[in-house]
């Protein structure tokens, strides 16, 4: 279970505003942050990842405090059990597909897990390729597999499908959803795509100018 309660001053297209969001994410839930650009969704992700320091509040993941303004705790990114998938893939171009996953493998973990992950995302045959030579869909599969190699307590997906064409987007949507269920992941997804949100989410938070304006299952929101 993730307790999130963060405050942060941000600047948007219409000037400064305060991000103030409080929610609880259940274990195994796929929560989507939905809203216009500049609403503060990516900032929430970055605060969960430890890449942006909140001005105040609390982030607690499965009983462990990652951030607490009261107790002056701010766990560094590398100590947070997260997996991140970025819109622009962010694969390491100097490493092969397998190398990208091997880099993510924690010390002491068995190498077979890498091959298992590659199998799960259907990329075994491309394991020795460099990311440069992969299609957008293949790159994003590698990014997803790399994020999951650590078996993270929290998976953060920041518009992972927005750079892909419709066919690839639908296929990857299914794959993400299947992996989320199979590995019992707790996932926070950022998406602008109405269909994507409706198909994948257990719950949706609609955020505008830093405020949570609506919350519920997709059927109630749309």
């Amino acid at each position: 279970m993730i307790k999130l309660n963060v405050i942060k001053k941000l600047t948007g297209a219409n000037g400064p505003f305060e991000l103030n969001v409080e929610t609880v994410v259940r274990k195994g839930e796929l929560l989507t942050l939905y809203g216009p650009s500049g609403a503060g969704k990516t900032s929430i992700h970055r605060m969960l990842a430890g890449l942006l320091r909140p001005d105040g509040g609390l982030i607690e993941v499965n009983g462990q405090t990652w951030y607490s303004s009261n107790d002056r705790i701010n766990l560094k990114t590398r100590f947070r059990s997260i997996g991140m998938v970025f819109q622009e893939y962010s694969l390491f171009p100097n490493m092969s597909v397998r190398g990208n996953l091997a880099f993510a493998l924690p010390k002491g973990e068995k190498e077979e897990w890498i091959d298992e992950m590659l199998e799960m995302v259907g990329l075994s045959s491309l394991r020795h390729e460099k990311p440069t030579y992969l299609s957008g869909g293949q790159k994003q599969r590698v990014a997803l597999a790399r994020a999951l190699v650590r078996k993270p307590q929290l998976l953060l997906l920041d518009e992972p499908l927005s750079a892909l064409d419709t066919t690839m987007r639908n296929k990857l949507q299914d794959d993400i959803f299947a992996l989320h269920k199979r590995l019992n992941l707790t996932t926070v997804l950022i998406s602008h795509d109405y269909h994507e949100v409706k198909t994948m989410s257990d719950r949706v938070l609609v955020i505008e100018e830093g405020r949570l304006i609506k919350e519920g299952i997709p059927e109630d929101i749309f």
């Binding site: 990842a49 430890g50 560094k76 990114t77 590398r78 962010s90 390491f92 880099f103 993510a104 190699v149």
Partner: peptide, 13 residues
């Protein structure tokens, strides 16, 4: 790219 560095940190490095 900054996201490469952030990706590495997010992988526990």
């Amino acid at each position: 790219p900054e996201t490469l560095v952030e990706a590495a940190y997010s992988l526990g490095k």
